[in-house]
Simulated assay, not measured.
Amino acid sequence: MATPVLTRPRPERTPRGSRPSTVRRRVGATPRPFYWMVVPAVAVFALLHTVPVLIGVFFSFTNYAGFGSWDFVGFGNFLALFQDDRVLKAYGFTFGFAIVATILTNVISLAIAVGLNAKIAFQSAFRGIFFIPYVLAILVVGYVFQYFFANSLPRILSNVPVFRDNILTNPDWAWTAIVALAVWQACAFAIILYLAGLQTIPQELYEASAIDGATPRRQFRSITFPMISAFFTINMVLSLKGFLQTFDHIVALTAGGPGTSTESITLLIFRGGFQGGEFAYQSANAVLFVVVIMLVSFLQFRILQRKEADF
């Protein structure tokens, strides 16, 4: 019996002058549309962000007033910052305000998120209501709060000595109004992040702990908070970074007053750099402030992530 001969099928030939129906793409090759979308975005970002930052860093080593000629002064602007009482006072106010607002924001937001995550009616409606402050223009809302603190609150709490007069004109208490406005707005975004973290916790853990007799407080301490510690870290870092850069809240409520009692670093940089002929000096202040924010955020991450590992 003859052995059959196996033949390999011949590939179909493509007529001359025509391309194959399919084009083999190299493994790992990036498609051209990717470059057409990414390159313009990177160019716009560099033009509107990176280039101005580099220009600001350059002028921080000069005595440029925002107009006219200039000369290099080296680190003279940076050294002068540490001897400027107004700058030091602005840093003190900014950090004090940011720490208080960060603590209040996270305590209030976590409490509201835990309450919303419970089995209550109209959960979706409440989530939408609590997120409204984040989408509103803070300057517009700030002027509403200004009217409230200047007119409505003195009439409502006329028997309380602190609130009998306009609190915004009190150099010792004006900062509390700014904290109230900032926390009211910041809680909206923090609540959403905490709710996202609470959704990742399996309900079986709560059911098992309830069988063992754990109280709601013990469940929060042993289950809820350890499971959302990563979200707590993100909220703390974002909150402190955002409050350190506060600007609109102060402009809308006090404009830095009375005097300079509520003047933040960002407001001082804006006033001195664009209105006071201190462009180079405040550019150095801005560079220093960026470094400070980066160091604070890095330390926060290191400390809070160690706490996560302990859980």
Rank of each mutant, 00 (worst) to 15 (best):
L136K: 05
T169Q: 04
G28N: 03
A101P: 12
E308C: 00
V290P: 07
I234V: 15
V144M: 14
Q305I: 01
I120Q: 04
V42L: 13
A101L: 00
E278W: 10
I201C: 09
S222P: 03
T7Y: 13
I167G: 02
V27R: 12
G273V: 05
Q275N: 08
P154H: 11
L268C: 03
L267E: 00
A208R: 06
F75A: 09
D248K: 10
G242V: 03
F231I: 05
A98R: 05
R217N: 00
G115F: 13
W173Y: 10
F34W: 13
N285C: 08
S229V: 08
V107P: 14
G273C: 05
G56T: 07
G128R: 10
F72G: 09
M294A: 15
Y91I: 04
Y147V: 15
P33Q: 01
F75L: 09
I191P: 09
G96A: 15
M37I: 07
F163E: 07
P9R: 15
N151Y: 14
T50N: 02
A43N: 07
F270D: 06
F148I: 08
A2S: 11
A41W: 10
M294L: 14
L116I: 08
V179A: 02
L198R: 11
P258V: 00
Y35C: 08
L198I: 05
T215F: 01
F289H: 13
I99H: 11
M37Y: 11
Y64S: 09
F231V: 06
D71K: 05
P11Q: 01
R164L: 02
R155Y: 13
F45R: 11
T22A: 07
G242T: 03
L79G: 15
A255W: 06
F163Q: 09
V162M: 05
I156P: 01
T176V: 14
V51C: 09
V140L: 13
